[in-house]
Computed example of a mutant assay.
Amino acid sequence: MRVLRILAFPISLIYAVVVYVRNFLFDIDFFKSKKYETPTICVGNLSVGGTGKTPMIEFLLSTLKTEHKVAVLSRGYGRKSKGYQVSTEMATVEILGDEPYQIAQKFPEVPVVVDADRQHGIAELERSIAPDVILLDDAFQHRKVTPSFSMLLTAYDNRYQKDWYLPTGSLRDSKKEAKRANLIVVTKCPKDLSKATQENIVAEIGPETGQKVFFSFLHYKNELKGGGENLVVTDLIDKKVTLVTGIANPQPLLSFLESKGIIVEHLNFRDHHFFSESEIENFNSKEFILTTEKDYVRLKGKVFNLHYIGIEHQFLNDGALRIKEAISALLN
Score class of each variant (00 low, 15 high):
Pro55Ser: 13
Gly78Trp: 07
Val70Ala: 11
Leu61Lys: 05
Lys53Gln: 06
Leu46Met: 07
Lys65Asn: 15
Ser81Val: 06
Leu25Thr: 14
Val48Tyr: 12
Pro39Asp: 02
Tyr36Ser: 04
Leu64Glu: 09
Gly83Cys: 04
Phe59Met: 13
Cys42His: 01
Thr66Tyr: 01
His68Leu: 09
Leu61Gly: 06
Leu60His: 09
Val48Trp: 14
Met56Val: 01
Tyr36Val: 00
Tyr77Glu: 05
Arg79Gln: 11
Gly78Asn: 06
Ile57Tyr: 03
Lys69Met: 05
Thr63Ala: 15
Lys80Tyr: 04
Lys34Leu: 09
Thr54Ser: 14
Ser74Glu: 10
Leu73Asn: 09
Ser81Leu: 01
Ile41Met: 02
Asp27Glu: 13
Thr51Asn: 10
Thr40His: 01
Leu46Pro: 09
Asp27Trp: 03
Leu46His: 08
Arg75Met: 03
Glu37Thr: 14
Thr66Ser: 15
Lys34Thr: 15
Asp29Leu: 05
Leu73Arg: 09
Val70Lys: 04
Val48Phe: 10
Asp27Cys: 01
Leu64Phe: 05
Leu64Lys: 05
Lys82Val: 03
Lys53Trp: 03
Asn45Ile: 11
Val43Pro: 14
Ser62Gly: 15
Phe24Trp: 15
Gly44Ile: 11
Met56His: 15
Cys42Met: 03
Ser62Asp: 15
Lys35Asp: 00
Leu25Gly: 11
Asn45Thr: 15
Tyr36Met: 01
Lys53Pro: 09
Ser47Met: 13
Phe30Lys: 08
Leu46Asn: 10
Arg79Met: 02
Phe30Ile: 14
Ser62His: 11
Ala71Thr: 12
Asn45Gln: 13
Asn45Val: 11
Gly52Arg: 10
Asn23Val: 13
Gly50Ile: 03
Lys69Trp: 02
Val48His: 08
Gly78Tyr: 06
Phe24Asn: 04
Phe59Ala: 13
Leu60Cys: 06
Phe26Asn: 05
Leu73Cys: 09
Ile41Lys: 04
Tyr36Asp: 02
Gly52Lys: 09
Tyr77Cys: 02
Asn23His: 12
Ser62Trp: 07
Ile41Leu: 01
Leu60Pro: 13
Lys65Glu: 15
Thr38Lys: 03
Phe59Pro: 12
Lys34Glu: 15
Phe31Ala: 11
Lys82Gln: 14
Lys80Met: 12
Ile41His: 02
Gly50Cys: 08
Leu60Phe: 08
Gly52Met: 01
Arg79Leu: 02
Ser47Cys: 12
His68Arg: 10
Ser81Asp: 12
Tyr77Arg: 06
Asp29Ile: 00
Phe30Ala: 13
Leu25Arg: 08
Asp29Thr: 13
Glu67Leu: 07
Val72His: 10
Leu64Ile: 12
Tyr36Cys: 00
Lys65Pro: 11
Lys53Cys: 02
Gly44His: 05
Thr54Cys: 08
Gly44Phe: 03
Thr54Leu: 06
Gly52His: 07
Pro39Ala: 02
Ile28Met: 05
Phe24His: 12
Cys42Tyr: 00
Glu67Ser: 14
Pro39Asn: 04
Glu67Asn: 14
Ser33Pro: 07
Cys42Pro: 09
Ile28Asp: 00
Leu61His: 10
Gly49Cys: 06
Lys53Val: 06
Leu60Trp: 04
Ala71His: 09
Thr63Ile: 07
Lys35Cys: 03
